Simulated scan of single mutants.
Amino acid sequence: MKKLLCIILTFVSYGTVFSQTPALIDKEKLFDLYQTQRYSEAANYLKSIYGKDVTDIKAISQIGYCYLMSGNNVEAEQFYTKAYRQEAQNLPVLFSLASINSRRGNIEKAKLYYGEIVKIDSNNFSVYKQLANLYSSNTDSLKLVYLLKANTINPTEGDVAYDLADVYATLQQREKAYKVLNIAMAADTGNIILQKAVLPIANFLKKYNEVILSGEKILKVDQDPLVIKDVAKAYYFTKNYAKAASLFKMLEAIGLQNEATLYYTSLCYRAMKNFPLAKDYTNKTIDEAISPNTADYYALLGLIYEETDKLPQANKAYKKGLEFKSTPTIYYRLAVLYDTKYKQPKQAEKYYALYLKSKPNPEIDKDEIKYVKARMEQLKTAD
């Protein structure tokens, strides 16, 4: 859309410059500035010719366009706003103002300008496409409305088909998503983006052979991890467990495994009666499912309980954290808890010893290490 708009504006500007401008303008100079994309210089040159109080809407739009192309959105908006005041229904001006405000994050103003375009031209594909892009959430009903409008006008346009299918998938309307993508793919058989987008939807709809056929073709030219995962799942559901496992392990080899891919790998080996590998991958799945920070979260929870004198809850939280990972922090907190709050020196000694064995950082934890060693000596003397 932006490229199309720029082309339109460029032709409008060229036409205006070379057929409507005063004789004072050096046409060759202006043409050279446009050709070499020195738009800021072109804007300043046009202002020097037209003067600061220019009122001709074509001249105002030319200068606004030059500022827009140079990236000076502030100046561009000023000139386009001036043009808008003169011709409120000028489509290029409205598109430019909407685009400028969208770039600057003024989404509500952009919506207003696009809304003005809809009032003038209710069948404008581009405006519905741009309006849909202003809504970030796929669950926003207006995003769906605008994408449907655009797709109805041009069902073969790939970008809109992709976005509409994505919204349908989010809304669990996968049959509709599949249909939208296939219409667009029929018009553009070489569109890899659309081919990739349809794979997870086709998998959900149990069109496994289609996923395998299309996915394998894609993988010959693009080893996309998402495609590998989709094809692997299709092989799994068609009971080609060896092929599925080999693809899932490709993801693991490049460090892109996750809980789901490891789980399916385990299922593949179980189906192939390879129980040792099935066990290994089940354990990997469990490890992947647990956050490496879980123990730290329980340590924090225990500390909060301890600081509010809820000692049983603190003790429970610390010990729950140890089920996920034995960390120096948890051992230290448990030792101090039993030492200073419960007054149980034997238990305290046990956790102080475990703290030292857990290899705390000698630089970061040097004060705690020093304290623990001294305290253990005190407890031994007391015995």
Rank of each mutant, 00 (worst) to 15 (best):
L199V: 02
F204N: 15
T189S: 14
R104H: 07
Y128G: 02
T261A: 05
G302T: 08
V231F: 05
I201E: 01
L131H: 03
F324S: 11
L356I: 04
M185A: 10
S141E: 15
S102H: 07
Q195A: 09
F125Y: 07
V12S: 15
E259V: 10
Y45M: 00
N90E: 10
L356E: 09
L262K: 06
D365E: 02
S126E: 15
Q223M: 12
N73K: 12
P312I: 02
T16D: 07
E175F: 04
S102K: 11
S99P: 06
L144D: 05
Y34K: 10
Y235Q: 07
K143W: 06
A335Q: 05
S326P: 14
K196E: 04
Y67H: 05
L9M: 15
Y331A: 06
K52P: 13
Y332H: 07
Q173D: 13
Q173A: 08
G158I: 10
E259D: 07
G321W: 00
K3A: 09
S136L: 15
N72F: 03
I117C: 00
D163T: 04
L33E: 08
E368V: 08
M69C: 13
Y34R: 11
Q344F: 07
G51Q: 02
K350N: 07
T327N: 10
F79P: 04
E252G: 04
S102W: 08
I193L: 15
